[in-house]
């Protein structure tokens, strides 16, 4: 049997507990039922008037009422708070299509990007990356490379002398190879590349620069052949210009290599079909190379009867110009930041 008072409150509840859109009204209801003088709160004080055997039953009934109200209250509050938050969030909506904030991120220099690619290929093959002075002694830049004073090969590399005929701005990075060999004392095998600045007395124009970046490399070990050079060049240029890129050797001449070759690769522009860039040959020259001249080995303390090796060198500018279709070498030394920015990204293999 339900207590009469309980029944009254229950009826009142049934009347009151409807969907409400106002949090204040809901809270008022809470005061009405659960406040200090709330209807349910007051039922609690009725318990003393209830006969003992009904006390338990009464208590359960009051509790049920309390639970009913609480369930209702929680549901309403949750609903209304959500509605309020939704409304607030709706007001906070922004135009996601407005321009983003430009973060501070810099780009590598184009030449540096190309050099790092080359370094990566060679480091994977065990070549160290070594560096040397840009103001060099004549003996390292020329004499120990089999280019004695008065040799015509010196004319082609018209050199900036810094003091007399002894100190100069290096005209090639080969002196780093000489220095590395001297350090090896004729005992240590060598695998190194040396990218770096070089200087020649050229007037600056679209295809000449008095300062440019060379990447030279040297391998000295036992039983090294021209075919090994071919294999190494194949690996490099396939990595730089794609797997379909072929290399070919043409006889050439350098004072510090014998045999000497020029390395041609499939024309980057026409992929070998023939175009103006490759003068319709399908090939472009990218690199000078050869088997290290026995005199050079000997001068640097390596016995040519025991040791052999190959050396190669190319210009970073030329490589970058071919790879990225740049036609003025001065681009590299007068950087327009809008152009530089293009190179701040990964490239396809």
């Amino acid at each position: 049997m339900e207590n009469k008072k309980v029944l009254e409150v229950k009826k009142e509840l049934e009347k009151d507990l409807v969907e409400i859109d106002d949090l204040k009204v809901v809270n008022d209801l809470k005061v009405k039922y659960l406040g200090k003088k709330g209807l349910i709160t007051e039922l609690n004080s009725e318990i003393k008037n209830v006969p003992n055997e009904e006390k338990k039953e009464f208590g359960m009934q009051v509790n049920e009422l309390r639970n009913t109200f609480n369930d209702y209250y929680e549901k309403m509050v949750e609903k209304l708070e959500k509605a309020e938050l939704d409304k607030k969030l709706a007001n906070e909506a922004i135009d996601v299509t407005l321009p983003a904030t430009k973060l501070a991120v810099g780009a590598p220099h184009i030449l540096e990007k190309v050099i790092e690619e080359v370094e990566e290929v060679f480091m994977s093959m065990g070549f160290d990356v070594i560096d040397g002075p840009e103001i060099e002694e004549d003996k390292y830049n020329f004499e120990m490379l089999n280019i004695p004073k008065g040799h015509p090969a010196r004319d082609a590399q018209d050199t900036f002398y810094v003091e007399g005929e002894e100190m100069l701005l290096r005209s090639q990075t080969s002196p780093v190879q000489v220095r590395t060999m001297l350090k090896g004392e004729g005992k240590t095998p060598i695998r190194m590349i040396c990218p770096g600045k070089t200087y020649r007395r050229d007037d600056d124009d679209a295809s000449h620069s008095h300062q440019f970046m060379q990447i030279e490399g040297l391998l000295v070990d036992k039983d090294i052949s021209l075919s090994d050079l071919k294999g190494t060049m194949d690996v490099l240029f396939k990595r730089l210009f794609g797997k379909s890129s072929e290399t070919r050797f043409r006889p050439s001449y350098y004072q510090f290599t014998e045999p000497s070759v020029e390395v041609d690769i499939t024309c980057v522009n026409c992929h070998g079909k023939g175009c103006n860039v490759c003068k319709h040959t399908g090939w472009v020259t990218v690199c000078g190379a050869g088997v290290v001249h026995p005199n050079v080995l000997r001068m640097s303390g390596y016995d040519p009867d025991v040791w052999s090796g190959f050396a190669f060198g190319f210009g970073a500018e030329r490589l970058a110009m071919m790879k990225y279709d740049i036609n003025d070498i001065r681009t590299f030394y007068n950087t327009d930041l809008r152009e530089a920015k293009i190179f701040d990204r990964e490239d396809e293999e």
Binding site: G106, H109, K341, D344
Partner: peptide
């Protein structure tokens, strides 16, 4: 570069 500066090369 990661601090927002772009690399350039100029003449010695």
């Amino acid at each position: 570069r990661s601090l927002g500066l772009t690399e350039v090369k100029t003449y010695t």
